[in-house]
């Protein structure tokens, strides 16, 4: 028996919104530790890694490890039926081929449930090596989304370069070039507005705008985003989901020929 209850169903809806551009279907691995998802997009350029801790749920029970393959478009349809303030309870029997989502309104005056067919997905699990990153940038997630959106107008790629002076985002294309530089700013009153850089050595890497833009769909999940970079290693873009876990995106760099 698997049962997970989340008072803020909108958090799960935000997670779905953040990954549906990249993935058509994915397996949710449920264990006593929580719910994990790991999947690459169809072109094998980016990877989504979601971790929702069991103790972040309002109720969590998982008697037996369970992998639930889901079509994310269908799952999106189910969550479209939920109210913004609804509580969601997900339930599945052991070895089941369906999962049930029950939505309850705040006042408990409306209860709806939707049963969705599960899929058998043959997804391989990847081992992600521990990396000593050259730099780790933490910045407001809204600012990151804005910069990526702005610079995407200029070209298909964005160079992210980080030095002790700050972080620079650059793009160039037919109409010209764009550069955005951010200095470290520590706002002790408003931690979420700070830009902090933990630098071991300067690094500059090039990434495709299309993927960076997709990642920023996770902005509503978190005030801050963490970018971890190292030469010849995928970029890690991490959004912490308060009290529940994290959503990470890995992106292979573009390499100069």
């Amino acid at each position: 028996m698997f049962e997970a209850r989340l008072v803020n169903s909108s958090t799960f809806r935000k997670v779905l919104d953040a990954i549906k551009d990249l993935l058509n279907e994915a397996s949710f691995d449920c264990s006593e530790n929580g719910i994990q998802l790991q999947a690459m997009d169809s072109s094998h350029v980016s990877l989504v890694s979601l971790n929702l801790k069991s103790d972040g749920f309002d109720k969590f029970r998982c008697d037996r490890n369970l992998t639930m393959g889901m079509n994310l478009t269908s799952l999106g349809k189910v969550f479209k039926c939920s109210g913004a303030d609804d509580t969601v309870t997900m339930k599945a029997q052991d070895y089941a081929d369906t999962v049930t989502f029950m939505f309850e309104s705040k006042k408990q005056d409306k209860i709806s449930d939707y049963e969705m067919k599960l899929m058998n997905l043959d997804q391989e699990h990847l081992g992600i090596p521990d990396t000593e990153f050259s730099c780790i940038i933490k910045m407001p997630s809204i600012e990151f989304a804005r910069i990526i959106r702005d610079l995407s107008q200029f070209g298909e790629s964005i160079v992210i370069s980080c030095t002790k002076e700050g972080v620079k985002f650059s793009a160039q294309g037919d109409i010209g070039t764009g550069n955005v530089k951010l200095a470290q700013t520590h706002n002790f009153d408003k931690e979420e507005e700070s830009v902090t850089i933990d630098l071991q050595e300067p690094v500059a890497l090039t990434f495709a705008c299309q993927y960076l833009n997709s990642f920023t769909k996770a902005t509503p999940l978190s005030n801050q985003v963490k970018l971890s970079m190292c030469e010849n290693v995928p970029l890690v873009v991490e959004y912490q989901i308060p009290e529940l876990g994290h959503l990470r995106f890995y992106l292979a760099p573009k390499i100069e020929e």
């Binding site: 990877l47 990847l126 292979a252």
Partner: peptide
């Protein structure tokens, strides 16, 4: 010109 790398080379299949 630059080419898009794929993730397969970075991660190991478990």
């Amino acid at each position: 010109t630059s080419t898009q790398a794929r993730l397969d080379g970075f991660f190991t299949v478990l």
